[in-house]
Design a protein around this nucleic acid. Structure first.
Length: 424
DNA sequence: GTCAATTCACATGAAAGAGACCACGGTCTAGTG
DNA sequence: CTAGACCGTGGTCTCTTTCATGTGAATTGACGA
């Protein structure tokens, strides 16, 4: 049972492909001791983690100043314009907003000015991804407990208005990944939030919306758009040199001296720049490369580790999605997998549905309708597990042309996982 | 040969249903003084 | 008399189905050269 001891706790489950070949039960104690003694790679790994907030933010001075200028009037007790920030992932939007609001709060506290900042990530599943949940979450952050469900939304609005008004101060609501909220809950919630000040007597609210989706404002209701985007800021992606600089600063804190192979940072930033200047991804890559080097008991993080890290991150992602996917969707993915393994490059919606129906019959599942399967297929496409393209074959109809985009290295494991999960 | 109409096989959108989960208020019941 | 169990009602949320409409190029068939 190689590695079973690592896999007993469901949440900390480590996929089999990560397990060390050289780690047998008898060597366990030695391994742990060796691990502790040989802490030669990381000085402070935390620095490379995505939620780490550095003291100084590099290459974002312009944006910090802009946010500060817009939010500064709160210090005089004035309501500010609503601010809308957009830029691709890993361009430092959240970091800049959190950094600036923290400093603002600091000054406010020193001068005894009543300002409150509430940060909510609207993407968080089952936390703030619907109208009700967002309001409940906001009310909660003002100290009012609201049940997870059961109350009418109107009532939650009332509670929220009351609790906000009772603060008697300027409140800055930061809604991160606001596009996700819009997608799920529609324009109404944003419209209501932008109009909230007319309902309040004692307090004021300023909204800061953050979105990864550059075309988000196009989808907004014009009424919401004009009031939410009173001020707009675009965060450009970092270029390779900037990412290099960021990586260098962070790695100085995170790693011991001379641990990184020369050229590693450059390679890492080149990877990230290729991925549209995503600094978060670059840091993750560096951290995982370090972890791999550590696990291999190496003294240095090598470029080869970087390549492994890239592969590992992708494999982990795919593996996690597949394992946590609902059963029905797993059957659909399995059908696609089977078609792919029949060494077919491309296949179409109809073929997949046919095989899916067959598999359902075999598994004693009630098959979903084609309509639903169509949605699942586009979900799979969005998750990057398949590539789907809508094509028209003229007289022979319009359909998705689908190919699998799971790496060949992880394919056998995915197949096995699906078979185990489905009991095939 | 040309061109408009037709056709196919889904894609996509909207609305609504099913079932899980939860809060709340009213009613019932058993235990206590 | 009271605390706790139980139940019905009304709410949200997610997943799903049903129904309706949209799509785009190959095919078809009428028409004229």
């Amino acid at each position: 049972m190689k590695g079973a001891w690592l896999g007993t706790k469901a949440k900390a489950y480590i996929p089999p492909f990560l397990l060390e070949e050289n780690m047998k039960e008898e060597g366990l104690v030695e391994y742990f001791e060796h691990f502790l003694e040989n802490n030669t790679i990381f000085k402070k790994k935390l620095v490379l983690q995505s939620h780490y907030a550095p003291n100084t933010i590099t290459h974002r001075d312009e944006q910090i100043n802009a946010v500060a200028k817009i939010l500064a009037p709160t210090l005089r007790g004035e309501q500010t314009s609503n601010l809308f920030i957009y830029g691709k992932t890993g361009t430092g939007k959240t970091l800049v907003v959190k950094h600036t609001t923290e400093k603002l709060l600091h000054i406010a506290q020193q001068r005894d000015i009543k300002v409150k900042v509430v940060y909510v990530n609207c993407k968080l599943k089952r936390v703030a991804d619907t109208e009700y949940r967002l309001l409940a979450q906001l009310a909660r952050s003002f100290g009012k407990e609201i049940p997870a469900t059961g109350l009418p939304t109107d009532e939650v609005y009332n509670v929220f208005y009351e609790v906000i008004d009772s603060t008697r101060c300027i409140n800055i609501l930061v809604l991160d990944e606001i596009d996700q909220l819009m997608e799920r809950a529609g324009n109404d919630i944003l419209y209501n939030l932008t109009r909230i000040n007319s309902e309040l007597k004692e307090s004021r609210i300023s909204l800061v919306g953050i979105s990864n989706d550059l075309s988000f404002t196009d989808k907004l209701d014009p009424r919401v758009k004009s009031s939410l985007s009173e001020e707009e800021l675009v965060f450009p992606p970092y270029n390779a040199l900037q990412i290099q600089d960021i990586l260098r600063r962070r790695s100085d804190l995170a790693f011991h001296e001379n641990v990184l192979e020369p050229g590693l940072i450059e390679k890492c930033s080149a990877y990230a720049a290729r991925e549209h200047g995503d600094a978060r991804r670059a840091l993750e890559l560096l951290r995982v490369a370090g972890e791999i080097a550590e696990r291999e008991c190496q003294q240095q993080v090598l470029i080869a580790h970087l390549d492994k890290a890239e592969q590992k991150i992708e494999n982990d992602r795919v593996y996690h999605i597949v394992r946590t996917y609902p059963k029905q969707s797993q059957v659909i993915l399995y059908a696609i997998l089977c078609l792919h393994l029949k060494k077919r490059e491309l296949f179409f919606t109809g073929e997949i549905y046919e095989l899916y129906e067959y598999l359902c019959k075999k598994l004693n599942f009630r098959p979903l309708t084609q309509r639903r399967v169509s949605d699942v297929l586009s979900e799979l496409d969005m998750l990057g597990l398949i590539r789907a393209r809508i094509i028209s074959k003229g007289r022979y109809g319009r359909m998705r042309e689908i190919s699998l985009s799971i790496g060949e290295t992880i394919l056998p494991l995915i197949k096995k996982t699906l078979e185990e999960s489905l009991g095939l």
